[in-house]
Structures are given as structure tokens and as C-alpha cells.
Amino acid sequence: MLQGALFQMDGEIPWEDLGNGIKRQCYGYGENVMLVKVKFEAGAVGQLHEHYHTQVTYVESGIFEMTIGKEKKIIKKGDGYYVPPHEIHGCVCLEPGMLIDVFSPYREDFLPTSSI
């Protein structure tokens, strides 16, 4: 059974620098779910992409222009969104912020090779 640590302490989780003003922290996960924090600098672009995972996201801070399929909305702290599997989505960060992503199943591509 695949499982991350039972407790995740913010100061102990390394930030992965994805480049272009985006960093990621992987929190708890098991085979069916994963929680991820993504930090964006103003102007950073989460390129349009799709994946087979279901995704729900909470905007912890900042302002983003979010695209899901053919819809675009400005989202800010306290907002959230849902992305069905294989739906094209991406964002542009308008004011620095943080997104809290939940994926089902877990994103195997986000884990270090040694964790799989």
C-alpha cells in the first residue's frame, strides 16, 4: 500500500522549484488522494494541460485567471474550482498567491522516484 507520512510539518517539507515563478510542496498522499501546495509569483503561468486525475483546488491567497475547458474566470482567496479528468486547464497568476490542490488518485509524477 502506497502512503506518505501520517503528519506533514510545513517547515520539514521541501519546496520543489518548478521554474518560471512556481514552487510545489507535496503533502499527504495515499493511492487514492494527494494534497499539494503550489506557490506562484505574479506573472507565473500554469500552462494549459490535462491529466487523468480528478482535481479540486482551493485558492489560499492571490488572484488568478483560471481557464477550465472553454471557461475563464478571475479567482481569488477563498474561491475554488473542480477539474474533471482529461479537462484542459491552466492559470495565470495576477497577484502572488498559493493554490491548494487535491488529486484523486495521487499524482505519481509528483513523487520522487524513490517514493514509488
Results as ranks from 00 to 15, higher is better:
28 G>K: 00
62 G>T: 07
61 S>F: 06
81 Y>K: 00
105 P>R: 12
6 L>Q: 12
48 L>I: 15
24 R>P: 12
92 V>D: 07
57 T>E: 07
25 Q>V: 08
3 Q>A: 05
80 G>T: 01
116 I>N: 15
85 P>L: 05
24 R>Q: 10
82 Y>N: 04
16 E>N: 07
20 N>S: 14
63 I>V: 15
59 V>L: 05
95 E>G: 01
45 V>D: 05
25 Q>M: 15
33 V>K: 10
92 V>E: 13
12 E>R: 03
85 P>M: 07
43 G>Y: 10
55 Q>Y: 11
99 L>F: 10
72 K>P: 07
56 V>D: 08
97 G>F: 13
35 L>K: 00
100 I>R: 15
101 D>K: 04
81 Y>M: 02
74 I>F: 03
38 V>L: 13
103 F>H: 10
7 F>C: 09
49 H>V: 02
81 Y>W: 10
97 G>W: 09
44 A>S: 15
102 V>G: 14
91 C>G: 10
64 F>C: 06
79 D>L: 01
113 T>Q: 15
24 R>S: 08
28 G>W: 14
41 E>C: 11
98 M>R: 15
68 I>F: 03
97 G>N: 01
34 M>E: 13
5 A>R: 03
1 M>L: 08
27 Y>T: 04
30 G>Y: 01
46 G>Q: 12
53 H>M: 05
10 D>T: 09
47 Q>C: 00
58 Y>P: 03
81 Y>E: 01
93 C>M: 08
31 E>T: 08
24 R>W: 13
76 K>Y: 00
77 K>E: 09
26 C>D: 04
41 E>Q: 13
39 K>A: 14
3 Q>T: 10
55 Q>V: 08
101 D>G: 07
87 E>R: 04
26 C>A: 12
75 I>G: 02
11 G>H: 12
74 I>N: 02
50 E>K: 15
16 E>F: 11
48 L>F: 14
114 S>K: 06
54 T>P: 00
28 G>S: 11
97 G>Q: 03
60 E>I: 13
30 G>F: 05
71 E>W: 02
89 H>A: 07
94 L>V: 13
35 L>I: 13
49 H>Y: 09
1 M>Q: 01
65 E>V: 04
6 L>D: 11
64 F>R: 01
20 N>A: 10
92 V>L: 14
53 H>E: 09
53 H>D: 05
24 R>A: 06
29 Y>L: 10
90 G>M: 03
84 P>I: 02
105 P>N: 07
91 C>T: 12
116 I>W: 06
40 F>V: 09
38 V>G: 08
26 C>G: 08
7 F>N: 09
22 I>Y: 06
84 P>F: 08
68 I>V: 14
16 E>V: 14
80 G>W: 12
110 F>N: 02
83 V>P: 04
65 E>W: 06
48 L>W: 09
92 V>M: 11
10 D>N: 11
96 P>E: 15
30 G>K: 11
38 V>Q: 11
37 K>C: 08
109 D>R: 05
98 M>F: 00
84 P>H: 08
64 F>Y: 12
37 K>L: 15
46 G>Y: 07
49 H>D: 02
110 F>A: 04
102 V>C: 15
90 G>E: 03
78 G>K: 00
11 G>R: 01
69 G>P: 07
3 Q>H: 13
74 I>G: 01
50 E>Q: 14
24 R>H: 06
92 V>F: 00
53 H>G: 06
51 H>G: 04
112 P>W: 06
111 L>P: 14
38 V>Y: 05
16 E>G: 00
98 M>H: 03
13 I>A: 01
58 Y>I: 11
